[in-house]
Design a protein around this nucleic acid. Structure first.
Lengths: 337, 337
DNA sequence: CTGTTAGCGCTTTCAC
DNA sequence: GTGAAAGCGCTAACAG
C-alpha cells in the first residue's frame, strides 16, 4: 500500500549513520546516549517498524517456527497450539501455523511452504507424514514431533508420544473394577496410531482380567460425533447385554451419548460411557464424562521450548507427560448378578 | 542449520544466468524451453526452495495475511480461521495467525509484530482494539474486520458484524411463542459488543410482546462454562417461576445445563434452554441445544477473499451473512396455566 | 563509539 | 531470449 519507513530514513532524521540505528535496535553495541535518544525519537516520529525479512536475510533467521497441525479448528490440537504460542512468547520467535488435514499430500505441501519461508524450526502435531521424511527434515532444521514413536535425537530433534495404550488400559481396567464385563469399544480411524494404541490398551485390560476379547464388541468410527452415534446404535443392536462403552475419543462419546438419549437409556444407571482426550466440554456434558486428559497445552509449551533451546543453545529438561484419568459421573457400579 | 541452496547455485548448475532462473520461477518472461528443462532439472537435483523473504524484499510483498484472532483455541473463532485458510488456499498468500486474548495491549503488540513481518493485509477477528486504531491501520494496508460496526470503506477496508441483536430477538420471540414468560438471561462479558447486542435483542423481544423487563432475570456471566453454571444457580434461587433461560453463548449454556442436571431439573420438560453460537458440540448435547448458528467459516472465507481482492484488484460481491436459528430439542411448550 | 562498505537472495530494468 | 548490474532494507565486519 504505502511505502514503509526504512532504517535509512530514521538514520537521516536522527543525523546518524544506519549502522548506529541498527546497533541500537539490535543492542549489538553501546552507543552514546544522546544519539540513542535522538534515534529513538526519530523512530517514534516516523513510526518506524523494522523489516523482519530484511533482517532475516542477513542474519539467516526468519524468527519464525513452523507448526504443522492437522486442523486449525480441532479442539484437540488447538490446546497444543495455545501451548506453543505461550512457549514462544517473548522469545522473539513467532509461530507460523499451517494445516495438513491428515492428508499426506497436504502435509508435504505446507511443509514446503514453511521451508520456503525459512522457518527456523518445525513442530509437527500428528499427521501422516512418513517417519522417513521427518528424519530427513530433522537433518535440515530442529524438528519436534508429537504423536509418534520415532527417534530424532541423532539429528537433534525430538519426538514425543503420549502413552495412549497404557492410559486406555487403565481406563478399561477402571470399568472392569466396577463390575463391567461386556464392554463395547468404538474405535477411531483405523489408520491412526492413537486409535490403534487405544484399542490395544482395551485388549490389554481384558486380557489382564481374563475376559475373552469379542471382536463384535468393537465397531469402527472415525473420531467424529456422527460415527459415535452410529457406532453406539450398532453395539446396542448386537449386544444388548453390554453395560459399558469405551469410545476412542470424546467427540465419538458425545455422539454415543446422544444415541443413548434418543433411546431413553440412562447414563450411568443403564450404561456406562467413557471417552478419551478430555475435551473442554467433557466436564459439562450430562453427566460429566469420564475421560483421559492428555496434557496437550503443556506438551505444546514444551515442544516450543525444545526447539527454542535448539535454536539458542539453552538447556531443557525432559518432558514427562502425565496422562490423567478424569473420573467423572458417566460410569456406574454394576451390581453382581 | 544447514546452508540453503540459492538461486545462483541453481543457475550455475543449469549453466544459465540467475535472471533466467528467476524468469522461469516467476513466469515473468518466456524462456527457451531447453533452458527451462535444464533449470527445472537443476532445481530438482539441488532441491532448491526459493526464499520467500528475499523475493518479498524486492517485490515489496511478503505473501502473507496477518490474522488477529483472540484465542487460537477458541471454538468460536476457529471456524473463521478455517474459512480464512480455505479462502487463502492457492492464492500464494499464507495466513499468519496471532492471538490478542481480548486484551488491548496484547492486540496492539501482535499487530506490531505482524506489521514488522510486512503482512500484505490484515484480518481482525473480534477483540477490543479502538475503532480509531483500526481506521489508522486501514490507511496502511487492506483491513477486514469482524465483529463491529465500523465504516472502513473510505480506506478500502471492510468491517462486518453479524446482527446479533436481531438473532437474539428472534430466539427470545421463539421462546415467547411457545408460552414462556419468565425468561432468564445469562449475559456474556459486559464489555463485549456481542453480549450487549444479545441482551438488547432479548429486551426487544420482551417489549414487542409487552412483557415487562425484570432486571433480576438477567445475571452476569463471562462467556465461559463455569459462569453459566453459577448464573443458572442464581437465577434458580431468585426466580423459581422461571421456565426458560437464554444464555448469551453455548459455552455458558453448557454450564447452565449442568447446574440443571445437578438439581434434577429436566430440559426441556421443566425448563427450556437456549444458547448462541451453535458450537459443533451443541448438536450432541442432551438434549441437543437450540442455538443460533453464526456462519463463521463462511465469514472467514469471505474476509480472506475480500483482502485478496484488494490485493489483486479483483472484484468481490458483498457477503450477506445469514444468522440461522437452529431449533433443536432443548425448548418445550409451556402449557397455559 | 561510529561511519563506510559489502553483501544476504532475489527480481528487475537495461542493454545486447 | 538472455546476461549484467543495480538495488530491496538490513546487519556485520572493517577501519577509524
Amino acid at each position: 500500500m504505502q511505502r514503509q519507513v526504512t532504517l535509512a530514513e530514521v538514520a537521516r532524521e536522527a543525523g546518524v549513520s544506519p549502522s548506529t540505528v541498527s546497533r541500537i535496535l539490535t543492542g549489538s553495541a553501546r552507543v552514546r546516549s544522546d544519539k540513542e535518544i535522538q534515534v529513538r525519537q526519530a523512530i517514534e516520529k516516523l513510526s518506524y517498524r523494522p523489516n523482519t525479512f530484511a533482517r532475516g536475510l542477513v542474519t539467516g533467521s526468519s524468527g519464525s517456527v513452523g507448526v504443522l497441525t492437522q486442523d486449525i479448528a480441532s479442539p484437540f490440537y488447538n490446546d497444543a497450539l495455545s501451548g506453543i504460542e505461550r512457549g514462544l512468547l517473548g522469545s522473539g520467535y513467532m509461530p507460523l501455523f499451517a494445516s495438513g488435514h491428515w492428508r499426506q499430500g497436504d502435509e508435504e505441501h505446507v511443509v514446503q511452504l514453511l521451508l520456503r519461508r525459512r522457518v527456523d524450526a518445525l513442530i509437527v502435531l500428528g499427521g501422516c507424514l512418513p517417519d522417513q521424511e521427518l528424519l530427513q527434515l530433522a537433518t535440515q532444521l530442529p524438528v519436534a514431533v508429537q504423536g509418534r514413536a520415532l527417534d530424532l535425537s541423532a539429528h537433534g530433534g525430538t519426538s514425543i508420544a503420549l502413552n495412549n495404550r497404557e492410559a486406555a488400559r487403565e481406563l478399561v481396567l477402571y470399568l472392569l473394577e466396577r463390575g463391567h464385563r461386556a464392554i463395547g469399544h468404538i474405535m477411531g480411524r483405523a489408520d491412526h496410531g492413537d486409535a490403534q494404541a487405544r484399542l490395544a490398551g482395551y485388549k490389554d485390560a481384558l486380557q489382564e482380567k481374563d475376559i475373552p476379547f469379542v471382536p463384535s464388541l468393537v465397531v469402527q468410527g472415525d473420531f467424529l460425533e456422527p460415527s459415535g452415534l452410529i457406532g453406539m446404535q450398532q453395539l446396542l443392536a448386537a449386544h444388548p447385554e453390554m453395560t459399558a462403552v469405551f469410545c476412542s475419543n470424546d467427540q465419538m462419546a458425545y455422539g454415543a451419548r446422544l444415541a443413548l438419549y434418543r433411546r431413553g437409556i440412562r447414563v450411568p444407571e443403564d450404561l456406562s460411557l467413557v471417552g478419551f482426550d478430555d475435551l473442554p466440554g467433557s466436564a459439562y456434558t450430562t453427566p460429566p464424562l469420564t475421560s483421559v486428559r492428555q496434557p496437550m497445552e503443556e506438551l505444546g509449551f514444551w515442544l516450543a521450548r525444545f526447539v527454542l533451546s535448539r535454536l539458542t543453545g539453552g538447556e531443557l529438561e525432559a518432558f514427562v507427560p502425565q496422562l490423567e484419568l478424569k473420573l467423572r459421573e458417566s460410569v456406574g457400579f454394576l451390581r453382581r448378578s
